[in-house]
C-alpha cells in the first residue's frame, strides 16, 4: 500500500506540491489527473526517490521511502514522461543492462528479459536496435524496463502521451494485465477518458493540492448534481415533451431536432419508469440512453469545486 502524508515541495517561491495526502491500495490502478504543472510529476518523482520532499512522508508497505536507499528502489518502478533510449543497443541488451543495474546478472538475466519482452509484445523485436523502434514500442520497452526488478508499485508518468490509438490500446491492455497480476499502478495523465476507462480510482490534483481522491463513479457523481438522458423520437415531439416535463425527476428538457436532452435527478428506477411511460403513451421512441458525462467537465467541476475526498 502506498500512503502519502502531508507532502510538500517548493521550487523557490513556487509551491509545486501543497500538503498532499492520499492512499492507494494494493493492486489498484490509480489515475493521477491534473493539468500541466499541477504537480503530478513532482509527486511521482518524490515517490520514486528522484526528488527530495521539503516535508511529509511517502510510505510504501509501512516503510518511509523518503530516506531513499535500495529498499525503495526494489519496490518501485518508474516510467518517466520523457523516456530516452540508448543508441547501439538492441531491445534485449537494453533490458539486460537495466537487469544488471538492478543486480540481476548471469543466467537469471536473459530468461527474465525475454519473458518481459513477451509480456509487452516485443518478442519479435528482441534484436532490433532500440532507437529504431516506434514510439509505442519504445514506451512498451520502457514499461518492461520498469518491471525488470519485479516492483510492487509502478509509476507511469503520462504513458500514453504521443501514442497513436493502436499503441494506446496495446498499452492499456498490458496495464490491465499487470493490474490483474496484482501490481499497484499509478498513472498520471491529462487524457481523462482513457484513465476513467482504465482506472479503478482517481486522484485529481490542481496547483499542488489534491482536489479529489476516490473511485471513478464517485468522481462522476460528485462532479454534477444531475445526469443527462437522451431520447430520440421519430414523431409526436410535442406530446413527448409534455410527458417528459410532467415527470417529477426531470430538471430540464431541451429539444434539438427530434432528440430530447433531459436533465434528470432521479434514480435508475425513475429512468426506467420514464422510458416505460413514453412507450406506453405510444411515443415512437427509437433510442433512449443515459448520456455519459463529458469527463473533461468532471475534471473541471471537481477542480473548481474545492477539495472533495470521496473517502470522507
Amino acid at each position: 500500500m502506498l500512503e502519502i502524508k502531508n507532502l510538500n515541495k517548493s521550487f523557490g517561491r513556487f509551491k509545486a506540491v501543497n500538503n498532499l495526502s492520499m492512499t492507494i491500495g494494493d493492486g489498484e490502478l490509480f489515475g493521477f489527473v491534473g493539468a500541466n504543472g499541477a504537480g503530478k510529476t513532482t509527486t511521482m518523482k518524490i515517490c520514486v526517490g528522484l526528488l527530495a520532499a521539503d516535508s511529509g512522508e511517502v510510505i510504501i508497505d509501512g516503510q518511509n521511502t523518503l530516506s531513499g536507499g535500495r529498499a525503495l528502489r526494489n519496490k518501485v518502478g518508474y516510467v518517466p514522461d520523457f523516456f530516452g533510449v540508448y543508441d547501439n543497443l538492441t531491445a534485449i541488451e537494453y533490458l539486460q543492462f537495466f537487469a544488471g543495474a538492478n543486480g540481476i546478472w548471469g543466467s537469471k538475466s536473459l530468461p527474465l528479459c525475454e519473458s518481459l519482452l513477451e509480456l509487452v509484445n516485443l518478442k519479435d523485436k528482441r534484436d532490433t536496435q532500440v532507437d529504431s523502434l516506434s514510439r509505442g514500442m519504445k514506451q512498451r520497452l520502457c514499461l518492461a524496463r520498469a518491471l525488470v526488478h519485479n516492483p510492487d508499485i509502478l509509476f507511469l508518468d503520462e504513458p500514453a502521451s504521443g501514442l497513436d490509438p493502436k499503441a494506446r490500446f496495446e498499452l492499456k491492455e498490458i496495464l490491465r494485465n499487470l493490474s490483474g497480476m496484482g501490481k499497484t499502478i499509478v498513472i498520471s495523465s491529462h487524457i481523462l477518458p482513457e484513465l476513467i476507462e482504465m482506472c479503478s480510482s482517481l486522484g485529481i490534483i490542481s496547483h499542488g493540492e489534491l482536489k479529489f481522491n476516490g473511485s471513478v463513479e464517485d468522481a462522476m457523481l460528485l462532479s454534477s448534481g444531475s445526469i443527462t438522458l437522451e431520447a430520440v423520437v421519430t414523431d409526436a415531439t410535442e406530446k413527448a415533451a409534455l410527458l417528459i416535463k410532467e415527470t417529477p425527476s426531470v430538471v430540464s428538457c431541451e429539444l434539438v431536432g427530434n432528440k430530447f436532452n433531459i436533465g434528470f435527478s432521479g434514480a435508475d428506477e425513475d429512468i426506467t419508469a420514464l422510458m416505460k411511460k413514453l412507450i406506453m403513451n405510444d411515443i415512437p421512441l427509437i433510442s433512449f440512453n443515459k448520456k455519459v458525462e463529458n469527463v473533461e467537465n468532471i475534471f473541471i467541476n471537481i477542480m473548481e469545486g474545492g477539495n472533495i475526498n470521496a473517502e470522507n
Binding site: K45, Y78, Y86
Partner: peptide
C-alpha cells in the same frame, strides 16, 4: 533522458 531511470535502479 535516461538519467532519471538510471537513478531509479539499484
Amino acid at each position: 533522458q535516461t538519467l532519471d531511470v538510471l537513478l531509479t535502479t539499484n
